[in-house]
Amino acid sequence: MKVTFKYFAQVRQATGADSEQLVLDDGADMAAALSAAADRHGEAFKKLVLDEFGVVRPSMLVLVNGVPAPRGGQRRLADGDEVTLLSAVSGG
């Protein structure tokens, strides 16, 4: 199945892309999807988005089709879903 990833703030910096489409196994969950994205984008992405156990960091907002996803990574994805990754930012 094809899932569109949209990247914002520091995640955009880590991937060098605004968005992309990844091909995942049918019925893949969020944990598998983020693991695939991490494999593709390497250490900077992995460090920013996932903790040492491969779980989404609390400083990340993860949305599926505009709705926040549970933090555990168990959210099942479907063909055509849009996953948004948004990192915490500050003023200055």
Partner: peptide, 28 residues
């Protein structure tokens, strides 16, 4: 808050809305 070409705004009303620690429990 902002970063690069992007920004974020929310209003926290104690007892009614999520607070900053609900939204981002840790420093990135």
């Amino acid at each position: 808050a902002m970063f690069s070409l992007e920004g974020q705004v929310t209003t926290i009303i104690p007892g009614k809305t999520p607070c900053l620690a609900c939204l981002y429990p840790e420093t990135p």
